Measured scan of single mutants.
Amino acid sequence: MGFKLLSKLLVYLTASIMAIASPLAFSVDSSGEYPTVSEIPVGEVRLYQIADGVWSHIATQSFDGAVYPSNGLIVRDGDELLLIDTAWGAKNTAALLAEIEKQIGLPVTRAVSTHFHDDRVGGVDVLRAAGVATYASPSTRRLAEVEGNEIPTHSLEGLSSSGDAVRFGPVELFYPGAAHSTDNLIVYVPSASVLYGGCAIYELSRTSAGNVADADLAEWPTSIERIQQHYPEAQFVIPGHGLPGGLDLLKHTTNVVKAHTNRSVVE
């Protein structure tokens, strides 16, 4: 069995187990497998329904001669939608809004960016022009300005110390501490036991640490421990890039980060 097929099978099995364990909360999309990078042309966006009122959005972007996937989250909030992270750029984010209108038909009224990198804030200006209120932590807003990236308009308070959590509509926002970046936030959907790890969490097929220019490698494993301790009931975990899975993604990420750190020390 090929690795790609095995990865998709694991996603399907995880979703099936969740649907059985929580039949009222989960209505997993039966329309197909989780979209992969090879299936999404740059400039297009796919939506994948995880649970009743919960979707991931998947886009792709060219970077350094390669094409990478990027995940975000959409959560229903009454007759409105909360968006977590842009679709990595203005063109993708405009396509995301169009796809949401086509498939869901509810307005996106608020959006949260989970850290300051372009795959999370690139497209904020498109959201703002569409009347979406954009939010991020003060740290993310400051770092985005320093980096020359787009800056969300509103500040999220109460997320300055490791372990801080605040309720934001249908989700809980959690600051686990520094990891992929010093400002990275985690998003949890309690009604569906869905954990969105953003770039602080890796997919299972990833074996290298990737972009760690703004990471705190020493603190990252401790931050992941905080996530595990705060959300032990999480059933569906979405990484910032690639295929979702279960809580095993947290341990896998820790292993990859520690291996990278150990290699760096040896070198």
Rank of each mutant, 00 (worst) to 15 (best):
P152R: 11
I100N: 06
E150W: 13
S208E: 06
E44K: 04
I227M: 15
A144D: 14
D118Y: 03
T253V: 05
Y188F: 12
V187M: 01
L6K: 03
R142M: 11
Q61T: 06
R263W: 03
S113D: 02
T86Q: 02
E172Y: 05
A25Y: 05
R167I: 06
S162A: 11
A19M: 15
V28M: 13
G53D: 14
T182F: 07
T60V: 11
A192F: 09
H252C: 07
R120M: 07
T114G: 04
D125G: 09
Y68T: 14
S193F: 03
G72F: 01
Q103N: 07
L97I: 02
V146S: 07
P176S: 11
V108A: 09
D164M: 08
L249Y: 04
V124Y: 15
A51N: 15
G43L: 04
L159D: 02
R263Q: 14
Y175M: 09
R46N: 07
Q235P: 13
E80S: 10
G89R: 12
L195Q: 00
L10K: 05
W55H: 14
H57G: 11
Q228D: 04
I74E: 03
A21V: 14
P69H: 03
A87G: 07
V121H: 01
W220P: 02
G43D: 06
G53T: 15
P41I: 11
V37I: 08
N211I: 11
A234G: 07
Y196S: 03
G123H: 01
G158L: 05
N211M: 12
E101A: 13
A130Y: 06
I151R: 07
Q103M: 03
G163Q: 05
I74T: 13
V126Y: 15
G43R: 09
G163F: 03
R128K: 11
A136V: 10
W220E: 02
D79R: 05
R263A: 07
D64K: 14
D52L: 07
M18V: 10
A94P: 06
I238F: 09
S155L: 10
V256D: 11
L24V: 12
P232R: 10
Y135L: 08
A95T: 06
V11P: 14
A192H: 04
K4D: 12
E147W: 06
G210L: 13
Q228G: 10
G163C: 05
M1E: 06
I17L: 04
Y202W: 09
